[in-house]
Design a protein around this nucleic acid. Structure first.
Length: 650
RNA sequence: GCCUGCGUAGCUCAGUCGGUAGAGCGCUUCCUUGGUAAGGAAGAGGUCACCGGUUCAAGUCCGGUCGUAGGCUCCA
């Protein structure tokens, strides 16, 4: 028998007989590794542990600690769950059951639904099947054999999948006990390797995600290779719930919804409005520096404008129904762009006027389907941090980059470091339908955008079929505390609508030309951005954003007059202050301030009153001793004015 | 929009077998005047989401509507 050389991840090499399996390699390294091994990677390809290796190869043994190994574990646990469901509900048909980030799911076609009690039973059955330690074996079939096998089992969804698998590759299935499932693999070798798992929740899910298809029943679950990491994940889910902006929004009295007002229509309470005002102040300051001009436009507009802009054609289902005014159709506006185009068109433009940058905190209304609404993150009335930049083709790259840089400037202020920039491109099949039919312009604009990003050294990912109907766009994705993904900032290039609106400028040679338009909303909508910030900060806003910046806590009523002086001094310095004059002990007042997440507490008693001092206490830092009132005011003012983001030290 | 769960005081929640509603926090008043996360007492506060049905009797059972939660799909 010939020998082969196996290279391990630490670059060490070992010799084995040809035909050695990853399991045997793991055993030769150590019994602990052999026990923990779930699958292997051979030359970067994930494979089962019992696949013979015939030639020299790079081999990595996968345990649940690696992302790839964890994925195998999750996927195998999905199979275990399907196995359990088939035992308990023989009429259920299996469909798909992939691993997703830290979780897995499996969709079943069953009569009725899964109840919470069913979940408990399924989990029990899974434990039983795991303890039986069934071998998981791979089966390789020709297409016709596979169709026959799954037809016999009456698994029509699997047959549909097999028929759509491309290429002539053999089709694989995995069997454990009485359960066989179509699957590419790899899988763990024994069900006994699955020890720490939990089913999380159920939901409906359309077959292939298409709402015209049958609704299946989905079960989500999770699995880990140790009890510790499972508990860590479950604990993370609990902690995330505490950061949920809907919960914190209620606790901190930031916003509310009212049944009689309507779903998706938030009411901003005074505390939340403070945050919005601060964001607007930041945006105005930044946009002034970048030479934007502010404009205002109406909430209502004739339908004919949206016919011209293409919104009625491309966007109508997310617009509120029209209203009849004097026999003419009007709509509440879903976007500000057509109005801004009209402002551009109000006066003739020379190339000397460009770029024109029009900004507005414009209120828009969008009819989102009821099931889509989600706290502040997806609402039906919203205020955008919107602007449209009109420029010459020569100016385009610089303007585009300046917009991207503005995102990064904001993200730095807010300490947002987990985000992903996505460049959405058109796909040629969508031309004339989803996308404006200008193939050459698409190519040219996309190339320029890509070039601008490269020159600006801005990391991004390109996604085909994700453009706006009038041009390529950049979305900045972020994740909420509970793991939902959202588009925060957005930035779109529009080479089409300015032409439709007849927007022009006169160039150096006296010729009329059409400007390019950049749509941009770096701070998203007020609603979504505040929702995101609540979760980002976990309710502990930096001082400049905090609705209540300072709480003044008199030790007793004897010093209430001095406490009022302190309050006045802070107010005069432009600091948002709350005096707690309740007849309580100072401990109780501190507790109240802490629960409201007030970062700065000024305790004042007779000692402080004597020589104009305050005892400073800060959240996460505790008692910081007595200081002069003037010094504290100066310090706080600086912290607020510089929008410092570093006070939280834990 | 679709599937499933939930809806009781301002908030968090209890309410068993169908017999007309409870706690803690918060709020108001009074007592206490205090030194870094809860001092004490009393009081007010409810169309049990809404509409209808079953029943001698409905917070509880049934149907519908609205809202909300978790998903599917889309999006700022």
């Amino acid at each position: 028998m010939s020998q082969i050389t196996v290279t391990l991840p630490d670059n060490s090499t070992r010799s084995f007989d040809s035909g050695v399996t990853p399991q045997e390699i793991a055993e030769s390294i150590g019994s602990r590794l052999a026990q923990d091994a779930l699958a292997a990677q051979v030359n970067g390809q994930s494979v089962d542990l019992n696949v013979p290796i015939e030639a020299d190869a790079e081999v990595a043994i996968l345990t649940g600690d690696s992302p790839e190994g964890h994925e195998v574990l999750l996927h195998s646990t999905a199979h275990l769950m399907a196995h359990a469901v088939k035992e308990l509900f023989p009429d259920a048909k299996v469909t798909i059951g992939p691993a997703i980030e830290n979780r897995f799911y499996y969709d079943f076609d069953i009569d009725g639904t899964f109840s919470y009690e069913d979940l408990v039973k399924i989990e029990e059955k899974m434990r039983e099947l795991a303890e039986n330690d069934h071998a998981v074996t791979r089966l390789e079939l020709r297409r016709d054999e596979a169709v026959e096998l799954f037809n016999e089992m009456n698994e029509s969804y699997k047959v549909e999948i097999i028929e759509q698998i491309e290429g002539d590759d053999c089709i694989s299935a995995y069997t454990q006990g009485d359960f066989t499932d179509l699957c590419r693999g790899p899988h763990i070798p024994l069900t006994g390797k699955i020890k720490y798992f939990k089913l999380l929740n159920t939901s409906g899910a359309y077959w292939r995600g298409n709402e015209n298809n049958k609704m299946l029943q989905r079960i989500y679950g999770t699995a880990f290779s140790s009890k510790k990491s499972l508990n860590k994940y479950l604990n993370f889910l609990e902690e995330a719930k505490k950061r949920d902006h809907r919960k914190l929004g209620k606790e901190l009295a930031l916003f509310t919804f009212d049944e009689e007002v309507g779903p998706g229509l938030p009411l901003w309470l005074p505390n939340g409005t403070v945050i919005i005002d601060e964001l607007e102040a930041l945006a105005k300051e930044t946009e002034d520096k970048a030479e934007y001009q502010r404009v205002r436009t109406p909430h209502l507009t004739k339908g004919s404008l949206y016919e011209k802009s293409g919104h009625l054609e491309h966007y109508q289902e997310t617009m509120y129904p029209s209203m009849d005014v004097d026999g003419i159709e009007y709509y509440v506006k879903p976007m500000n762009c057509p109005h801004h185009h009209k402002i551009y068109a109000a006066h003739p433009k020379s190339y000397r006027d460009l770029p024109v940058r029009l900004s507005e905190y414009g209120t828009c209304y969008r009819y989102e389907k009821s099931g889509q609404l989600f706290g502040l993150m997806r609402v039906r009335s919203m205020q955008m941090n919107d602007a449209h930049i009109y420029c010459t083709p020569q100016q385009f790259k610089d303007e585009f980059l300046a917009v991207c840089k503005m995102y990064l400037y904001y993200f730095d202020i807010f300490g947002i470091d987990k985000y992903q920039l996505r460049l959405g491109l058109h796909n040629p099949e969508g031309l004339g339908g989803k996308y404006i039919d200008e193939p050459e312009l698409w190519k040219q604009t996309e190339a320029e955008v890509r070039q601008a990003l490269i020159e600006g050294n801005i990391d991004h990912e390109e996604i085909s079929g994700e453009a706006a109907f009038y041009g390529p766009k950049i979305d900045v994705q972020v994740w909420s505390a509970i793991g939902k993904e959202f588009t925060l900032a957005t930035n779109q290039v529009d080479f089409a609508i300015p032409k439709r609106f007849g927007l022009t400028f006169t160039d150096e040679g006296g010729r009329e030309q059409t400007p390019i338009c950049i749509h941009r909303a770096p701070l998203s909508t007020h609603e979504r951005f505040v929702g995101f910030l609540i979760e980002h900060y976990g309710g502990d806003f930096p001082l400049w954003l905090a609705p209540i910046q300072v709480a003044v806590l008199p030790v007793s009523d004897k010093v209430i007059d001095y406490a009022k002086n302190v309050e006045t001094a802070l107010k005069e310095a432009g600091i948002r202050v709350q005096l707690n004059g309740q007849p309580n002990k100072v401990g109780a007042k501190i507790r109240q301030a802490e629960l409201q997440r007030v970062n700065v507490m000024l305790v004042v008693g007779e000692k402080e009153a004597q020589d104009n001092q305050v005892a400073l206490r800060r959240r996460f830092k505790g008692d910081l001793g007595t200081q002069s009132l003037d010094d504290v005011v100066t310090e706080l003012k600086t912290e607020i004015e510089t929008r410092r983001n570093t006070y939280r030290t834990n």
